[in-house]
Design a protein around this nucleic acid. Structure first.
Lengths: 223, 223
DNA sequence: GCAATAAAATGAATGTTCGTCAACTTTGAG
DNA sequence: CTCAAAGTTGACGAACATTCATTTTATTGC
């Protein structure tokens, strides 16, 4: 009698213990991966060590992330989301929309070359650039559009400009951290990237040279 | 009697068998790696298979290249050097020095997104971008300087602009081959990259839209 | 409560690959 | 011809991502 009256898909009444544990595990895994990857770099961080620090079995990681790369992407996205939030709290006081965009890319460049959690990810340039494009894209594209509306920039395809900028920022960050590019060339780098947004050379130089307000401190790591 | 009259460093009279074999081995290894990496990608190409196709023992590869990465870089450099040579044969007929630069970056973008030997390397963005910077840098920087002298571009640090351009080109090439970026956005990509060289938007658009002469065919693979 | 069932966690085993090394071969000067 | 230095070899060790059969945990109908 296969026609028993068992509910085939029991409506998930409210959040059960499973869902709570899953959220804890996912967060713990990302936090552990973040720490270990920041300490030793993406490649040197082994899945076993990450699993141990998150206090789960080695195989469990694969219930949450299909591969090590996918886990690394999740880590990156969490870092970037956090940075985007911190940037937001500062830029909404700016009068010049072009400066909002300039501050954003300048901050990403500074963070990528300074924060060890970012630095250790840089060798995976293509992954990090793509994550940057996706995660901070909505903010950056909005800022570009604002600056265009204000007559400061000239851009027909903001997504294209943003993608070009992402690859350039990450590539230059890696070059700087590896010493192939002088660290004090950050201002000219920003100026040239602003040129891609359709501002002339003098305007770009001036914008890139403006002094920057401080970011709010990063939220403390939760244990 | 340590003072025997043995020449401590016997002047290499002429090229001996060792030197000849070494040149053959190095060339064979690069050729084999080129083929296999083009077929299967850098990661999927195993050192053993490369050694076998080059007809040397597995350990011998490490007499010539410290690591798999170093071998991959050598392959890239050979590809890029070849492309630079082919570009040279075309551009020296151009009247406008800005067009020489534009043609160069356009050709690199086209080749990277089209030639399977390049395409398979793209996932190693950071390596390929750096190789591009080094290998084609002398040409690109010379072209930039010429265009500046002709009043077409405005650049204070050509190496910086070239490095930014390298990372952007390679990143966009990968995005195109993976379908994350439409392939028909190549012209606007080039236009935006030209903006970084200090030309205004209209000039960049016009330069990027010019039709391109064909390259001479690639030299045939030697067996 | 209590089975019955489904979902998730586990960790030992697997398969792969890079790079090393001790033994072996080739080279070429004396 | 002799022999030491240079070059080659392929088997091997270590490391690591991923898999999967088994065990543990949670949920639900009764």
């Amino acid at each position: 009698m296969p026609d028993t009256h068992t509910a085939p898909k029991p409506a998930p009444k409210s959040e059960g213990r499973v869902a709570r544990r899953q959220r804890r595990n996912r967060a713990a895994l990302i936090a552990a991966a973040r720490e270990i990857m920041a300490e030793k770099g993406v490649d040197a961080a082994t899945m076993l060590e990450i699993a141990e620090r998150a206090d789960v079995g080695a195989g469990t990681v694969y219930n949450y992330f299909k591969s090590k790369d996918e886990l690394a992407v999740a880590v990156l996205e969490s870092l970037m989301h956090e940075l985007a939030m911190r940037i937001e709290t500062v830029t909404d006081t700016f009068g010049d929309p072009a400066q909002v965009y300039a501050f954003g890319i300048r901050t990403v460049l500074d963070t990528a070359t300074t924060d060890p959690r970012w630095k250790q990810m840089l060798p995976r340039s293509e992954v990090i650039a793509d994550a940057l494009f996706r995660t901070m894209g909505p903010f950056a594209i909005r800022d570009l559009n604002n600056a265009v509306a204000a007559g400061r920039f000239r851009v027909t395809d903001p997504a294209l400009v943003w993608r070009l900028t992402c690859h350039a920022i990450i590539g230059m960050s890696l070059a700087i951290t590896e010493g192939r590019q002088e660290a004090d060339s950050k201002v000219p780098i920003i100026a040239r990237l602003l040129c891609m947004a359709g501002i002339d050379g003098e305007g770009a130089d001036e914008l890139a040279a403006r002094s920057l307000p401080d970011l709010p401190p990063a939220p403390v790591e939760r244990n």
